[in-house]
Simulated assay, not measured.
Amino acid sequence: MSSLDVTAAGEEPKRTWPEVVGLPIKEAREIILKDKPDADIVVLPVGTPTTRDLRPDRVRIFVDTVASTPHVG
Rank of each mutant, 00 (worst) to 15 (best):
I31N: 01
L44P: 13
V43E: 08
L33W: 02
H71C: 02
S68Q: 11
E19W: 03
R60F: 11
D40Q: 10
A8G: 06
V63L: 10
P56K: 05
P70Y: 12
M1I: 12
L4H: 12
V21C: 02
T48G: 05
D57C: 01
D40P: 00
T69D: 10
D38C: 00
S2D: 12
D40T: 01
S68D: 12
A8E: 13
V20K: 00
T7G: 00
I25K: 10
A8M: 13
V72Q: 06
G47R: 15
M1Q: 05
L23P: 04
V63G: 08
R15N: 07
P37H: 10
T7M: 04
V42Q: 15
A8R: 13
P24V: 04
I25S: 13
G22I: 00
V63E: 07
P70I: 11
T65A: 13
T51A: 00
S68K: 14
A28N: 03
L4I: 12
L23Y: 00
E11H: 09
I31C: 02
T50W: 00
K34P: 06
E19Q: 12
V46N: 14
E11L: 13
L54I: 08
G22A: 01
P18F: 01
S68A: 13
S68M: 14
L4T: 13
K14C: 03
G47E: 07
T16S: 15
R60H: 05
V6D: 04
D35Q: 13
R29I: 04
A67P: 01
D35N: 14
P13H: 07
K36N: 10
V66P: 11
T16D: 15
I32D: 04
R60L: 08
E30G: 06
V63D: 08
E11R: 10
T7V: 06
G10S: 05
P45E: 02
R15K: 15
I61G: 09
A39L: 01
P49T: 09
T65V: 13
K36W: 02
V6F: 01
R55P: 00
T51S: 15
G47S: 05
V66F: 12
T7Q: 06
A67E: 15
V63C: 13
V59P: 06
R60V: 14
P45I: 05
D38H: 08
V21P: 02
M1C: 11
R52M: 07
L44E: 15
A28V: 02
L4Y: 13
A39E: 12
F62C: 01
K36E: 08
A8W: 06
V46T: 12
P45Y: 02
E27G: 14
E19H: 10
D38A: 13
D64L: 04
R58D: 02
L23F: 01
P56F: 02
T65Q: 12
D64G: 15
I41H: 03
A28S: 09
R15Q: 15
G73I: 08
P56L: 10
L23S: 05
P13L: 11
P18C: 03
D35W: 09
V59C: 03
R55G: 02
P70N: 07
D35I: 02
P37V: 04
E19A: 05
I41F: 02
D64T: 08
I41C: 05
P24E: 06
I41G: 00
W17H: 08
P37I: 06
G73N: 03
T48V: 01
K34W: 07
V66K: 05
T65S: 15
G22C: 01
P37A: 14
A67M: 08
T50I: 03
